[in-house]
């Protein structure tokens, strides 16, 4: 029992690792601040393209969505970071992660937006157009606000997934929280830093997960 405590819940080791993990947390936050907006904007572009009148645009979007929903994000990240240099393009770890997330989460956010947009009745579109609003004005002022409101729970849920997934940045030596914790683990030969990192993820994401449950119950009710 004591051994277990020493290996996993060693307060001394945690205290030692704290500054490193805190810096890692800062980098994770920075990463989130970059990849969540990228995904939200990229997803919007993907959704608009997949609902476009142009067949070419529609098929391109569908192909893109299928491809990056099927490819594991970790594979995409390693391909970008380790593969692109052979094509003469060397990305920093941060840039590689951002690009991988843009490709991956645009698809998931895009499908959520698309469901939202399709949930807004055709009458809304017709009412707006009949008052002289252009297609773009109708989309931004009438359709999109309602679409987003209809899919907030799904957007939140996907964002939780994105935050969790930022830990894959550790494989390209980006010093986010998991990378920092793992570094501390390898120096101390002790698992406690990883436990601490897990606890921090839990504390940050638990409220969002609770919120999602609330949403789900409200829909069920």
């Amino acid at each position: 029992m004591e051994l277990l405590r020493q290996q996993f819940f060693n307060i001394d080791v945690m205290v030692q690792a704290w500054p490193l993990i805190l810096r890692g947390l800062g980098m994770t936050a920075l990463l989130c601040l970059a990849v969540i907006p990228l995904g939200l904007l990229g997803g919007l572009a993907v959704a608009v393209a997949s609902l476009s009148r142009s067949r070419l645009l529609r098929w391109t979007a569908k192909g893109f969505i299928d491809l990056f929903r099927a490819l594991p994000p970790l594979v995409v990240l390693i391909l970008l970071y380790s593969g692109l240099p052979f094509a003469g393009l060397r990305l920093t770890p941060f840039a590689a992660v951002c690009l991988a997330f843009l490709l991956n989460s645009s698809c998931f956010y895009g499908e959520i937006y698309r469901a939202g947009i399709e949930s807004v009745g055709r009458g809304q579109w017709e009412a707006a157009r009949s008052t002289g609003l252009s297609a773009a004005q109708t989309f931004t002022s009438v359709i999109l606000p309602q679409a987003v409101r209809n899919v907030v729970p799904d957007l939140v849920s996907n964002t939780v997934e994105v935050v969790k997934l930022t830990s894959i940045a550790s494989v390209v030596s980006f010093t986010e929280m998991l990378y920092a914790a793992d570094m501390a683990r390898s120096v101390t030969f002790n698992t406690s830093p990883i436990v601490l990192a897990a606890a921090i993820y839990l504390v940050i994401l638990w409220p969002a997960v609770r919120l999602m449950s609330r949403f789900e119950h409200r829909v069920a009710a």
Binding site: G121, A127, S130, T131, G132, V142, R149
Partner: peptide
């Protein structure tokens, strides 16, 4: 768009913007 401003339309299902 300019012409539609001059033609008011009222629908069976009202189609007010709920937001």
């Amino acid at each position: 768009n300019a012409m539609r401003r001059r033609i008011g339309m009222v629908f069976q299902s009202f189609n007010l913007y709920p937001h």
